[in-house]
Amino acid sequence: MIDMSILFDHWDMFLQGFGNTLKASLLALIGSFLLGTLMAVFRIAPVRPLNWLGTAYVEFIRNIPLILVVFVFFVGLPAIGIRLESFVAGTLGLTVYTAAFIAETIRAGILAVSKGQTEAARSSGLTYVQTMRYVVLPQAIKIVIPPMGNQFINLVKNSSVLGVIAGLDLMYFGDLISADTFVTFDVYIFVAVFYLILTLPLSLLVGYLERRLARAR
């Protein structure tokens, strides 16, 4: 059976890693929500240069690997004199990467609100910003919640790249424990369980919300 003593002997390391994984995921979620919303607005705003900027950001970031983005923050920025701690570099990398996906999610949500409604709101005298604020966004948010949940699950999983840059997360400590004890199988199972504690409930919740939304339509 699984050797539980590995878990108890390194309990503080697992716990610290778990805490940091959660912290990195939450911080990156907030950051990428803000940045992603901004980029989504750029993409649909009636201003050409902003459209280009938003599109360029989303298309470029979506098509390159996360670990590359993280490496840019970790070893690229120091090359031009900006030094960030592993955890900070990793979390920023996650934020920048995830923002591109969240931007797409939010844009899709906004576009899903029918054009007719927008036009009706505009013709009834609301400004573009008011239309967005009072008509489109409240509806879009409801549509966007389940896919945002999926993005958060991805974020928790993707935060494991912090392990590669010594970001003190769950993956880092798990990997460290397995390297030091020569016990790989059991340690990785424990690491998996810790990730599942975060992701499984989220995944079930997202499934529930998706079904509810589907029924509401």
Binding site: V161, M171, T184, F185, Y188
Partner: peptide, 23 residues
């Protein structure tokens, strides 16, 4: 599927390379 989908790929890479030899 539900389990694998909710795990980081990085962990699965470590798993297939470092842990599978154990079995």
């Amino acid at each position: 599927v539900e389990l694998v989908r909710n795990l980081p790929l990085l962990l699965i890479i470590f798993f297939t390379y470092f842990a599978l030899p154990e079995i």
